[in-house]
Design a protein around this nucleic acid. Structure first.
Lengths: 143, 143
DNA sequence: TCCAAGTTTAGAACAATTCCAATTCGCATC
DNA sequence: GATGCGAATTGGAATTGTTCTAAACTTGGA
């Protein structure tokens, strides 16, 4: 766990500087916040969370940091219909399950061969660089 | 062509009245416009198209009509990231291919067994009512 | 013919996000 | 350490796409 957190920070600084960007306290905090509570928060939710630790941070900065992290491929955006963009630090290939009752989003791992199969279904003149899969439905709480 | 248009209109009137709604000239026009040019237009684009035929129609009405048609399951919404919602009269199960260069959206038919296979990949406590699949990439113009 | 409910309309309001211009920060160099 | 410069942050204004509102209009049925 500690090792992982350390790796995360190093990974952050590394990936940022790869893009010629700085590892600022704000960027580190926003990133740590996402890793800590992996529940696909909106920018406003991230803002509320990080403000407890850094009360002077602004919403604009949270938007900036999130965009930067997305561009460095440290996190991903998750959109559904036209509601607020949510953010996800899970970089493995996975789908999202939207619980229509609770509004919660759950990650669903998908086997890589399956994704290849999916891409192979495209007509030959289409070349997909990415596939997004979203399930809608309800999930039972289980013990 | 004429027969098809007639069927469409009848289908429209029928499905609307099933929901206790009226087949107004505005709703018919918006629906016909979508069937005529099946290129996933935004509400603004639909507005521009129908205005040539009914100059007094308002943007709010176009939004209302589109929402009504979605609720009656005569058309579907297509969202991508946070850009404007687009509308699609194709009711068959299909995926969408977003061409990242042109911004165009293409329908991609998917075999039904495949969609079942996809749903069966979910953990047992998830029950999906729908799946959305979106490809991102580029498509070659072919002769 | 008249009424009530459904529908349309223009414009105001709204929410999420981006833009802007003015500080502030942090590293490199002296 | 001081200094300078580009990068980053900030608060507030602006923008975008959409929804809301209240008034006027339309329609089918008593």
């Amino acid at each position: 766990m500690i090792a992982q957190a350390t790796n995360s920070s190093e990974g952050l600084a590394q990936k940022l500087s790869d893009s010629g960007l700085r590892a600022t306290p704000q960027r580190e905090l926003v990133y740590r916040s996402l890793l800590q509570q992996r529940d696909h928060p909106t920018a406003e939710e991230v803002f509320a969370r990080v403000k407890t630790e850094m009360p002077t941070i602004s919403l604009a900065t949270v938007y900036n940091c999130l965009e930067t992290l997305v561009q460095c491929r440290l996190i991903r955006q998750v959109n559904h219909e036209r509601s607020s963009t949510r953010y996800c630090p899970n970089l493995r290939p996975h789908a999202h399950f939207h619980d229509e009752q609770t509004g919660e989003i759950h990650d669903v791992d998908l086997p890589a061969p399956f994704l290849d199969q999916l891409k192979s279904m495209l007509p030959t003149n289409f070349h997909a660089s990415a596939v997004e899969i979203t399930f809608l439905g309800k999930s039972e709480k289980n013990s």
